[in-house]
């Protein structure tokens, strides 16, 4: 292991680090919005839209991000829609993540106990009031663990962006390996870089899970 090589590569990795961070951030936020919309459509059983949502969720949950990206990046231009690699990456991540987040939210809503809903109903609440005051607050809290797992998952998935040459962390490392044939050093930095993002984040998310759970259910 040659520390000098590592040191010289740090500026490039810092660039890739920033790229990974902002792509993840945009992807995760977008995925949350898409996922929430989808789960609301399913919760309120909106006709037609509901069927479309479940087709979307199943399609994207059961296919790899890589082929979704290839489709966006290579196949769409043939149909007359050309997008930059970064645009394709973000769209791909949002749609992949949206499907997972939708499952997370829906799981939370479904997890709210039936007796809670019954007791709200017995007080004369409308369906909307039940959703607003009982199912959503408790359901969000129940869905936090799976949303947290999805966040970690999506950040790791950005490594696949390297196949369409988006200069994020993994792509940076692969480029450097290609140029200088020093795989040990660059892969070492790469692993450390992911650890720097993911270890604190996963600790933070675990803490948040506990807090939200306590805040809502008191255990």
């Amino acid at each position: 292991m040659d520390w000098q090589i590592i040191q010289q590569s740090l500026p490039q990795f810092a660039q890739g680090f920033r790229e990974t961070l902002w792509l993840s951030l945009v992807g995760i936020l977008g995925a949350m919005v898409v996922g929430l919309c989808c789960s609301l459509i399913q919760y309120f059983k909106v006709p037609v839209a509901r069927q479309l949502v479940s087709v979307y969720v199943e399609l994207f949950r059961n296919t790899p991000l890589l082929i979704q990206l290839f489709f966006l990046y290579y196949a769409f231009p043939v149909m007359g829609l050309k997008m930059s690699a970064v645009t394709c990456g973000i769209i791909g991540l949002i749609f992949l993540g949206g499907a997972y987040m939708a499952e997370g939210f829906t799981g939370g809503f479904d997890g709210v106990s039936k007796t809670q809903v019954d007791s709200g109903r017995a007080l004369g609440m409308s369906n909307w009031q039940l959703a607003r005051y009982i199912v959503f607050p408790q359901g969000f809290s129940l869905s936090v663990p799976s949303l947290a797992a999805n966040i970690i998952f999506l950040i790791k998935e950005t490594s696949i962006f390297s196949v369409i040459a988006i200069p994020e962390l993994t792509n940076t490392a692969l480029d450097l390996i290609g140029l200088y044939y020093r795989s040990n050093e660059y892969l070492f930095v790469l692993v450390i870089a992911y650890a720097i993002i993911l270890i604190p984040l996963s600790l933070l998310l675990t803490w948040l899970e506990k807090r939200v759970r306590y805040g809502t259910f008191g255990d």
Binding site: S159, I160, S162, T170, L174, I177, S183, L187, I199
Partner: peptide, 21 residues
Amino acid sequence: EFFRIVPTVVLLFLFYYILPR
């Protein structure tokens, strides 16, 4: 935790580059 943190792509490259060399 190691396998949780390292993306699978990176894992593949670790094996692909480091084992042979």
